Simulated assay, not measured.
Amino acid sequence: MQDNNLGLPFWEGFLASDLERKNGATWITLVPDPRAPLVCSGCDSNCWQIHETGWRVVRDMPMLGDPVWLRVRLRRVRCSECGTRAERVKWLDRHARVTQRLAEFVGLWCQKLPVAHVCKLSGLHWDTVRRIERTNLAAQIAALPDAQPTRLVMDEFALYKGHRYATVVLDADTRRVLWVGEGRSREALRPFFEWLGPERCRAIEAVAMDMNTAFDLEVKEHCPQAHVVYDLFHVVAKYGREVIDRVRVDEANRLKHDLPMRKVVKRARWLLLRNRANIPAEKLASLDELLAANQTLSTVYIMKAALKELWSAQGAWQWRTAWQTWLRMANESGVEPLQKFARKLKPYWRGIVARVRWPMHTGQLEGINNRIKVMKRMAYGYRDSEFFFLKIKAAFPGNP
């Protein structure tokens, strides 16, 4: 179908000279508008000489449900400043095979939908959509201001099945995800400090984390002046696994001749691990009866509450008194798993008392990790970790 050189605003500088529909697609031929200035893509100056012309086929937004292909006549100009360069086309990036508005459309929907769904919506191939999204994500991250963190939060999340993890580092003040890397070892975390650089490492004052020795050692090597702050949630969770759960199993085994009581103890796992404030009212009586009937379980349950109080101390001396009392009670309890846990916890006392001066925790990252899991489920997983990590950093750019 021939047209009388129709100019449209979304193809600025070009005229539609031909339109035809074949094989379920719309093909439009675009030629340069002789009234539009010829601009060098290198220096944006007007040019007057054309070196050569050629054709490029690009995709544009679908029209009435059909894909749209553009045959565009492009020119190379002779610029007095840059030499031979391609002309500047406002709606088409250099070497691009899709228009800017289609790329923006894909980038917008990739923030809300999985790549496979965006492919169906735009009619583009999976690799093309992912390449566009990767470019957009990199541009978003590059546009962010330089990070100048003074307090950090570190945590991990499951990347794949089979105990494969990734580490996330958050700026505690701006809530910006600064870095994501595969693994949770010292070697996995080291690239973050190399990216941060010696000057910014010296500005770090405190780092909140769980009781991960690898994190601890790497922070001390690169930021020796920083205070390590151990998170209450992870310490109490570790206490639940290594003390309460162990004692519950041992007590159930000891009660093998008292089957009714053994059954009660075996089924009380979540009742013992949950905070008392979160236990339904109808279950509290069962908990109190269990603790009254079993002295050992009662001891470790009370010691858990006392352990949590260490994070509520208002001053260093109050904390020191509470800490020494807890250690003495643990050592005198006669409960072997509790005594073993106290011995393991003792070398970490500096990271616990640091909470008095630096009231930090990894709760900020726990919420972010939950959103990361949602992102992973929506996409049915990601084919490469680097792309996934770009999405995470772009999704959490921090507060302005």
Rank of each mutant, 00 (worst) to 15 (best):
D3C: 11
N4H: 11
N4A: 14
N4P: 02
G7T: 09
F10M: 13
L15I: 08
L19R: 03
E20N: 08
E20W: 04
W27A: 04
V31A: 01
D33I: 00
P34I: 11
A36Q: 12
L38Q: 13
V39P: 03
G42Q: 09
G42Y: 00
C47K: 00
W48E: 12
E52C: 05
R56F: 03
V57C: 03
V58P: 10
D60V: 07
L64Q: 09
R75S: 15
V77N: 08
G83K: 08
A86E: 07
V89T: 07
K90V: 03
W91N: 12
R94A: 14
F105G: 00
C110G: 05
Q111D: 15
P114M: 13
V115W: 04
A116P: 00
K120R: 15
L121K: 13
S122G: 07
L124W: 01
H125A: 12
D127S: 13
T128C: 06
T128R: 10
T128E: 05
V129N: 10
V129I: 12
R130F: 00
I132M: 10
T135C: 04
L137F: 08
I141L: 08
L144E: 06
P145W: 09
P145S: 07
A147I: 05
T150P: 00
D155Y: 12
D155A: 06
L159M: 04
Y160K: 14
Y160F: 13
H163M: 04
D171R: 02
D173M: 12
T174Q: 08
R176G: 12
L178A: 02
L178Q: 01
V180Y: 11
G183N: 07
F193W: 11
W195V: 06
A206H: 09
A208E: 03
M209H: 03
M211H: 09
M211S: 09
T213L: 05
F215R: 06
F215S: 01
E218R: 05
K220S: 10
K220M: 09
V236A: 08
Y239W: 10
R241D: 14
I244S: 04
V249F: 05
E251A: 15
L255Y: 07
K256C: 13
H257F: 04
D258Q: 12
L259F: 08
P260Y: 10
A268W: 01
A268G: 08
R269H: 14
W270S: 08
L272S: 06
R274H: 13
R276Q: 15
S286M: 12
S286N: 03
D288Q: 14
L291G: 02
S298Q: 09
T299H: 02
M303C: 09
L310K: 07
S312P: 01
A313E: 14
T321H: 07
L327I: 15
R328A: 15
A330H: 01
A330T: 03
S333M: 10
R350S: 11
I352V: 15
V353F: 07
A354W: 01
P359K: 15
P359Y: 13
M360K: 02
M360A: 00
E366Q: 09
N369E: 05
R371W: 09
K373I: 11
Y382I: 07
Y382S: 10
R383Q: 14
F388R: 05
F389P: 00
N399Q: 06
